[in-house]
């Protein structure tokens, strides 16, 4: 058996170390668990519930759309106008152009009394915070929302104009600010808002948030301004009127 010279020996050893290292890394990578699902039974249950709710909502939506399709198909000759009117009404309702009434909650935002007593400066409500509140409400299933009687729709603008928070041009200077939100399940909206972190965010801004328990018949006004749609125009009518 020939003897390795010293340099060769060390070369082989270094390579063995590298190979061993690679082996160990690969071994460890394969052994590491694949993103453990460590939710407990309750969390799983609630996520199942969420998914089920989503499913039933989607199913309801499908049924509604199928109905609509049927309406179009069946009444194409007789009730075409009726179907169109119905769609128009529905779209108007979805766009927030009609008054709605239903179960919902009333949120009242007022300056914190303690802060006033302490003489802390009170700044007006921040539009960002308000927007977040609206997002939160939408997230928890609110169907329509109004702020101080101004309906919040998709193109509602909430911003500071000269240091004054405004919603669609209406000032939000007078407190308390009343936010109405209605939802199919007002109780769940109430419960979720009650524990929402956003309330603490308002507290940081020296604002107090009161959430009323669910009100049975909450009326949310229609959007008052004119809807301005830029970059959209009716397509040219087809003379033959084929469908």
């Amino acid at each position: 058996m020939n003897r390795m010279n010293k340099q060769t020996k060390w070369g082989v050893t270094v390579i063995s170390v590298i190979a061993g290292f690679m082996l160990a890394v690969q071994f460890q990578t394969m052994r590491s668990p694949k993103l453990k699902d460590n939710r407990d039974a309750w969390e799983l249950r609630s996520s199942i519930l969420d998914e089920q709710q989503k499913q039933s909502k989607i199913l309801a939506e499908t049924t509604r759309l199928e109905h609509q399709l049927e309406n179009y198909d069946v009444k194409q000759n007789t009730g075409k106008e009726q179907a169109l009117k119905q769609t128009l009404a529905e779209l108007k309702r979805e766009a927030g152009l009609t008054e709605t009434a239903g179960g919902g909650i009333l949120i009242r935002i007022s300056p914190l009394k303690e802060a006033e007593l302490l003489g802390e400066d009170f700044h007006s409500i921040s539009p960002d915070l308000l927007r977040r509140l609206i997002n939160e409400l939408n997230m928890y299933g609110a169907d329509s929302i109004s702020i101080n009687g101004q309906r919040v729709i998709n193109n509602t603008v909430i911003r500071d104009i000269n240091g004054e928070p405004k919603i669609d041009g209406y000032s939000l200077k007078n407190y308390p600010i009343e936010i109405k939100a209605d939802a199919e399940d007002a109780q769940s909206l109430y419960d979720r808002m009650k524990v929402s972190e956003i309330i603490e965010q308002f507290f940081v801004d020296n604002l107090n948030v009161e959430i009323s328990s669910p009100i049975k018949n909450l009326v949310i006004p229609a959007y008052k301004n004119k809807l301005e749609i830029d970059g959209m125009e009716p397509s040219e009518q087809d003379e033959k009127g084929d469908s």
């Binding site: 050893t13 063995s16 170390v17 061993g20 082996l23 160990a24 071994f27 460890q28 990578t29 590491s32």
Partner: peptide, 19 residues
């Protein structure tokens, strides 16, 4: 020596916890 090197490499790999 190479076998020892292999063991050292495996040991190092397991110790450093690289994934």
């Amino acid at each position: 020596l190479p076998i020892f090197g292999l063991i050292v490499g495996v040991f190092l790999g397991l110790m450093t916890d690289i994934r």
